[in-house]
Structure formats: structure tokens, C-alpha cells
Computed example of a mutant assay.
Amino acid sequence: MLPKKSSKKEDEDCISRNVYKNLAEVAITYLNEESVPDKALDAVHMQLGSYEKTYKLYLNVHHCVSACVRIPLPLLKLDHVQEAVGDLKVSEDAQKEIIAVVQTYKSKASEAKGNNFYPKIKRFRWRIDITISSSVLARVLEPTLLFEVTLCDGRKKVFEVSIAKFHQIRYSVAAALKEIENLKKKKLLKT
């Protein structure tokens, strides 16, 4: 009597949630550029029976984890993950387990950061100065922008920028804002 061939659905059902949890943890370790233990996938290999299945499943889970990591923590829900993952053949139970692992990772990472943040701008003042002459030249007539920034922690920063450098900064900021707008239009970042 020939052994019964199992369907893909039956294969997926027999994979425990613990396998997905282990694979997601390995993927997060890899994405953090930490060293992954040599025998990290051995337990999964023992359950699945072949390296080919193990590596295919790991590849799908890795792709799913990398998509989940890019989604902000408040939006990390099953429907957003399904949009991000797209055509991958990862079951809903697996996605739930992956979401749980990524949420745990993100909450631990945010706790580790604590209250380390950049100071916010409390006050911003500017003016245009025109240099009429200098000790070297009798007549210069060169405009410069003078900026004074007061930070929320009380520090004051004063800096001077030429008109040409100001236009270069203005162009760079406009390009960055346009790129942010393009990213907001993509499905992955929509709320």
C-alpha cells in the first residue's frame, strides 16, 4: 500500500505555532545583525523532516517579520500584516504568532530606549545680515542668514548660513518631504 500524499493545507496545519515563534525569533535576531546560533533551525528541521521545507518556511517567515518590523507598533494588526505580506503562503495562525513575537520585540526595544530623545525646538528666530565691507575688501554687499534656535532644555544655538547654502538646505528638505509623501501613499504605511 502506498503512503497517502499529504496536501499543502495538511502540512501547514501540522506545523505548530512554536515552530513559527522560533523562526520569527531567529529572523529578528538576524535582522538586528546579531549572531545567530549555528543550531538555531535544528529544532524546526527535526519537526519538518527536511532542510528544504525548513529553509522555505524560514524564508517566508523572515519576509513576514521584516514586513512587520516596518509597520508602526499601534498599527501592527493582522489585516495590515496580510497587506504587507501579500502573496506569501503563511497561514493566519503563523501570522498571529509572528505578530506576537514582533510586538514583544518592539515593546522591549522601546523600553530599552527609555526617554532618550532629541531636544525639541522651543523658539526659532532668524534675520538677514548684509556685510557691507570687510577689512580686506572695501565693498562686499554679501547677504547671510543668521539663525538662533532655543531648545526645550534651555540651550541656544546660533549659526550663520550663506544664501547659496540656505537654498541647498531648502532643496534637500523639500526633496525629503516629497519622499515622505511618496512613502505615505504606499499601502504599507497607510493607517
Rank of each mutant, 00 (worst) to 15 (best):
L73Q: 14
Q103H: 05
I121H: 05
A175V: 05
F166L: 07
A175Y: 02
K165L: 15
Y105T: 00
W126A: 08
Q95T: 15
V102Q: 01
V69L: 07
Q168V: 05
P74C: 02
V136N: 04
V81I: 08
I169W: 07
V158F: 06
K108E: 08
R139L: 06
L141G: 02
L75I: 06
C68L: 13
R155C: 14
V136C: 02
L76I: 12
A100R: 10
K156M: 13
V65D: 02
P143E: 05
I121K: 01
I169R: 04
K106R: 11
G154E: 00
I163S: 10
V65W: 00
L78V: 07
W126I: 09
Y118K: 11
F117M: 15
E92T: 12
V136G: 03
I130Y: 08
R139M: 05
C152T: 14
Q103K: 10
S107M: 11
Q82M: 12
V81H: 09
W126C: 04
K156G: 04
E148N: 12
I99K: 00
V158Q: 03
L88D: 00
K157L: 13
V161H: 08
C152M: 10
A112D: 12
P119K: 07
G154C: 04
V81E: 00
G114K: 13
K120T: 14
S107A: 11
V85I: 06
E83K: 12
K96I: 15
E148Q: 14
V69R: 10
V136E: 00
Y171F: 04
A67E: 01
R139S: 09
I130A: 03
C68P: 12
A164P: 10
F166M: 13
A138L: 08
A94T: 13
V173S: 03
P74F: 04
Y171A: 03
E97Q: 13
E148I: 10
C68D: 11
L88C: 02
